[in-house]
Design a protein around this nucleic acid. Sequence first.
DNA 1: GCTATTATCGTCAACATGACGCTAACGGTG
DNA 2: CACCGTTAGCGTCATGTTGACGATAATAGC
Lengths: 218, 218
Amino acid sequence: MTLTVDLVLLTIRNGELQVLLVRRGIPPFQGEWALPGGFVLESEDLAEAAARELREETGVDPAAGHFEQLATYGAPGRDPRGRVVTVAYLALLPDLPAPVAGSDAAGASWRPIAAGDPLAFDHARILADGWERARAKLEYTPLATAFCPPVFTIAELRAVYETVWCTKLDPRNFHRKVTGAENFVEPTGESTIRDRGRPAQLYRRGTATLLHPALLRP
Amino acid sequence: MTLTVDLVLLTIRNGELQVLLVRRGIPPFQGEWALPGGFVLESEDLAEAAARELREETGVDPAAGHFEQLATYGAPGRDPRGRVVTVAYLALLPDLPAPVAGSDAAGASWRPIAAGDPLAFDHARILADGWERARAKLEYTPLATAFCPPVFTIAELRAVYETVWCTKLDPRNFHRKVTGAENFVEPTGESTIRDRGRPAQLYRRGTATLLHPALLRP
DNA sequence: GCTATTATCGTCAACATGACGCTAACGGTG
DNA sequence: CACCGTTAGCGTCATGTTGACGATAATAGC
């Protein structure tokens, strides 16, 4: 029985939801895209193994965004080489200035999730589950901020929702909802100009862990 | 690397939330309560292994209630005998007329979850996670019906919520909410007398898989 | 200045919710 | 059979949230 961890790393770049994929260097599925992952060592916890892989493959500090266990996949035929069970972890990360360089898998790159690249093993299913988990968590938790840098505008936060949900949201209602929710975001007092138009206030993450009431998908 | 499945089987009996526990016959933790579970066979999927254990330990058909993967636990020291990773499954079951008899584990019995029995391994944590999952799922899915027999009254459904959430709900508002939600429950046309008082209509599960809007905990 | 653009505040109707009054329909009791 | 305790189910009302959208503010570019 072989146990691995696989990572669904999501981020938002260029206004698209992207996922970190690696090109497989060895069979099976050689040359195809796959989720990054690796073996669980004898002495480490599952979350540790996932965090280690995250650092190795991307140089990213797991504390930068959000990190949670997604699900475990163990269908008998999922790896042609034998019985491999994998514990999938989901991470939501801000667009990182120091990405994949200098890391283990030079073949790793951010790919638009909507591109629908064919994936090795059952990774398409794992990715779909991760995306759905992310969509759901945006509804009832303030985790959208995990996609944002430490300081951000309400419009940037709204773009996260619009990107993950593939919808458009009313800027005025969104602003009211987010600034009205207890401890979702807190103002820094600063303001900035990101695009054209009136300067926007800057916010940082609040202390809330749940959104009450939820911000439901349209 | 040893892989097992453990089961968090919840049901409501005598107006209490109860969990199926077994007395361990062998060390470690001999004589203590533990969640039922067993090894995953080479040829079976994880959900299959969990369903097989469910049948073996309780004689219950997994289709009777609701069944889902909960999470995976693999801290290095969680089993003193060596590295054992366990995939936990959660089942919500109606109060079954033909329970544990004639099954594998004669030592299995339903225990009130509130009793706070000390559990072997990290099973207290797994049970707590399962209970919390159940509480959360009642909010935004119609899964409360999984605790009910095929036909039930609104008051019985309300008792499920009150038991799992440890609260009291207003019978009138609950009735309005449940009967007003699309496809949560559908009337059978029959009515019955369960306690004292006016006879109640009988309902069966509807086809909905999500509750919209949610039924939030007070 | 003037315009395009974005941020933020306000307004209003529709809807959902919590609190609670009221009537209906039973069983039990004198 | 009248009466009462009990539970089911309907209606009402004040309150809070949401969606749609008008209005104003503050910037860049021309």
